[in-house]
Amino acid sequence: MNKLKDIDEAIGYIKDGMVVMIGGFMGVGTPEIFIDAILEKGIKDLTIIANDTGLPHRGIGKLVVNKRVKKVIASHIGLNPETGRQMNNQELIVELVPQGTLAEQIRCGGSGIGGFLTETGVGTIVEEGKRKIAVNKTEYLLELPLKADVALIRGSVVDKQGNVFYNASTRNFNPLIAAAADLVLVAAEKIVEVGELDPNQVMTPGIFVDYIVGGEK
């Protein structure tokens, strides 16, 4: 099957109100072409699951600034003051999650694991409403998996089968979210023919990827 799509067709799969996971860390490894297309198409009321909300002019930050987001699940919102402002004005729901817990919740979501136990957050506000389980006298929080309707990932090199290589620190949450969503769109910095990407370098196997869009910078 042909996974290559133009941006208009690919973004047509994203509907108002969907739960969308977006890769990247402070904008690095975030697929900007999808962000821009969501803005252009007027898609709104999204629930975003991501490490952070980018910067006001970069990455997920642009979605927040343009009021396309209803709820954010993230570990950090400090570099985008607009997220905090909307949260304080109750225009936006923000659920803050420790970064390692968020990564593992997404990993579980994509791996068929029903939850996991972590010491992170015990005795803090993070434990509110969660089950505490003691194992061998250590107390843990039970954290549950996270899944999404759509994952938007950014690949440095993508072959036409959807195999993805992420350069350097652009990898971050991208391979995790690629496994945890019903539909996975990759924005490719470079698209190569099948066979050109060394199988040893593949970080997200193409079986996870539904559609590939070129033109990511």
Binding site: H76, I77, G78, G100, T120
Partner: peptide, 17 residues
């Protein structure tokens, strides 16, 4: 609370682990 809420990022995991 109410003033500065940047989020914990990786700090909780780092201090715990």
């Amino acid at each position: 609370p109410g003033k500065m809420v940047p989020g914990m990022g990786g700090a909780m995991d780092l201090v715990s682990g």
